[in-house]
């Protein structure tokens, strides 16, 4: 699991994963809430307090290689454009494929 620090490198890794799964395998993208905890919650007294601010963990894998990225509120709000780009990518490649099969 590679946790990428910059959003741009995450996007380029994601693009690579899209290309790798072109002919076979699948691409999985997961999003979940992440509170900064690195260890599980202890049953008695919680020493691993969450940092309080909520983030969003994004993971992408092709079943072999994993990349992940922790997005903060500011990043998400400022990069909705970037998200659109990656989703459109699916649309484009999909569109091409359906045209080819017609």
């Amino acid at each position: 699991m590679v946790l990428l620090k910059s959003y741009d490198s995450f996007l380029s890794e994601l693009t690579k994963l899209f290309e790798e799964t072109r002919n076979k395998n699948s691409l999985f993208v997961t999003i979940k809430r992440y509170d900064g905890r690195t260890k599980p919650k202890s049953c008695k007294g919680d020493k691993n307090e969450s940092t309080g601010d909520n983030k969003c963990l994004i993971r992408a894998t092709n079943g072999k290689r994993k990349v992940s990225y922790v997005a903060y509120a500011s990043v998400i709000k400022g990069n909705i454009v970037g998200l659109k780009k990656k989703d459109k990518r699916i649309g484009r490649t999909k569109g091409k494929k359906t045209m080819a099969t017609q």
Partner: peptide
């Protein structure tokens, strides 16, 4: 909210999401 996750799987070879 804590245990929730959202996953999508894209399979280009089958054209399925």
């Amino acid at each position: 909210a804590v245990n929730f996750r959202f996953v999508w799987k894209y399979r280009h070879s089958d054209g399925k999401l």
